[in-house]
Each structure stands twice: as C-alpha cells, then as structure tokens.
C-alpha cells in the first residue's frame, strides 16, 4: 500500500487534492444546472408528481408579456451598467495622485462596494421617496415637479440601475487604480516628449496598458448586470405592475412566491438567463484559453 503510494503519488495526489472540492462543486453547481434544464420541460409545483410537458413552458414564455418586460429590462441593465467602467476609470484617474491622505480617500471611495446591496437598495429607495426623498428635494429646488421614480414605469428601471452603478463604479475604480499603478512610466514620459497629452495620451498609451483591468471590469460588470436580483427585490419587488422585473427576479417570483411555485416555468426562465450568460462565460473562457496557450 505504502509502496504503491510512493510509486504513484504524482498521479494520485492531484485526485486526492481535487476530490473534496470538486465533489462539492459538482453536487451543488454542475449537476443542478442540468437538473434545472430538465425541470424546465416539466410542469411541477415542487411537491407532487412532475408532469412532462415538452417545450410547453418555453412556448408560454414566448407569449408572456412579463417575460419580455424582464428581458427588455435585462438589456437596459446590461447596456447602462457598462457606464460603471468609464465612470470607474474617471474616478480612478481623479484619485491617482500622491497627495497627503490619498489612501484614505481611495478607501472611502471604495466604500459602497463593501456594503450589502440590501443596504444600498434601502438607502436609494429612501433617496427617491416622492414626498421627502432628497432626489425630489433637489428637483423642487430647481423648480421641477417631483417624480416618484420607483412608482413610474418609465423611470423605475433607470432608478434602480443608478443605485446599482454606485457600488459597481467603486469596484471598477479599484480595478483601474491597481492597473494605473502598473503602467509603464517610461512609455508615458516618452509619449509626453512627443507632445502627447490629455485624452490622446490616455487613449493611445494608457488604455492599451489598462486592457487587463478593463477586461475584468467588463466581466464583473456584465455578471453583475445579469445577476441584478437584490436591488429589484429590495427597492420595488418588481413593481409598479411588474415594470421593473428582470429575468432573475421574475424567475424567483414564478418559482417561489405564494402565487407561484411553478418550478418548471421558473426553470425555463432560468435557462434563458443562463443561455445569455453562457455567451459571456464562453468568451471569457476563450480568452483565458488563449492566455494559457500563450504561456
């Protein structure tokens, strides 16, 4: 036994080291993905017998207004959430100095990312309150009529996204701050000698060097946008009349609310969301694969 181990340990050790983590990951992450796909072909209330319905859930989805609202909102989220990247870069450039106390400033600017989205959601719902929220006080100050952001179907999604952009910008900022630390100062000086400055310098010299940071910022921002559940749940519960739903929230609503427990239908929504996310996961993996080969 001992000798066998001695002789083969280089082959056995990785199995040993991988097993516990891989097992947990398979049971809790990989297998459930396939289970969900399978459930999406059934009508199931989570209790009784599953009834096979083929693609009926997907057919129903195609004719479900709430699904399209959620999908549309997801797209708005994806597009607007991207603003966190330039915003984060802007703040990072602003803070990338060596004055006294700048470290404290940097950490305080990062603050919103550390606190929970539940707290962010509560803070912003209060900020938007039509009768006494600061937002409407400001509007009032400029002589505008108050807007009940979270009760207005045209504004609500934007209102929630702004709340989400706050921590997300902080996240991107920190990625860029670290990236800026690593830019090659000789190149900058050389470019400066060539009389490049400002935006030109940023565009042609700095940004190419920040590419890894930008890539990660994009990945986390896209994932964040597609996972946008917490803020919707806290701030509006999907309302008014379902106009701020996103796929993640709609799925939860269908599968778990008092009115639902439509596990199959919920699973179908989740599969659609997963398919969208898969595009990004695949391109991320592809890039990683290229990097690995490049070694």
């Amino acid at each position: 036994m001992r000798d066998y181990w001695r002789a083969n340990q280089q082959r056995l050790a990785p199995v040993l080291f991988l097993l516990p983590g891989l097992l947990m990951f398979l049971v809790y992450v990989v297998v459930p993905i396939f289970q969900s796909v399978s459930i999406s072909f059934y009508a199931w209330d989570g209790l009784g017998e599953k009834e096979y319905v083929g693609i009926a859930n997907y057919v129903e989805l195609m004719d479900d207004e709430a699904f399209y609202t959620s999908l549309k909102n997801n797209v708005i989220w994806l597009v607007l959430y991207m603003l966190a990247i330039p915003a984060g870069l802007f703040v990072a450039l602003f803070l990338n100095q060596n004055v006294r106390g700048i470290r404290i400033y940097k950490s305080l600017f990062f603050f919103p990312f550390v606190i929970s989205q539940v707290v962010v959601g509560l803070v912003f719902s209060w900020f938007y309150d039509p009768s006494y929220g600061l937002f409407n006080k400001i509007l009032e100050f400029f002589g505008a009529d108050p807007i009940a952001i979270l009760a207005d179907e045209d504004w609500v999604t934007y209102g929630i996204i702004i709340a989400g952009l706050w921590p997300q910008t902080a996240y991107c900022m920190i990625l860029y701050l670290t990236g800026l630390n690593a830019v090659d100062s000789e190149q900058i000086e050389a470019a400066r000698l060539d009389n490049a400055k400002g935006l030109k310098l940023l565009w042609y010299i700095i940004l190419p060097q920040l590419r890894p940071a930008t890539f990660i910022a994009m990945v986390v921002t896209i994932i964040g946008a597609l996972r946008s559940f917490d803020l919707v749940s806290i701030m509006t519960n999907g309302g008014p009349w379902g106009s701020s739903r996103v796929l993640a929230f709609y799925m939860y609503e269908q599968a778990f609310s008092e009115y639902g427990f439509r596990m199959g239908y919920g699973a179908a929504i989740a599969v659609v969301l997963f398919a969208i996310m898969m595009i990004y996961i695949a391109s991320f993996l592809y890039k990683m694969y290229r990097d690995e080969r490049g070694h």
Binding site: P130, S131, P146, A148, A151, D152, W241
Partner: peptide
Amino acid sequence: FFLADHAA
C-alpha cells in the same frame, strides 16, 4: 380623487 404617486 386618489393620492398622487400611490404606487410608491
């Protein structure tokens, strides 16, 4: 007749 912004 109803309160404004009642959905909020």
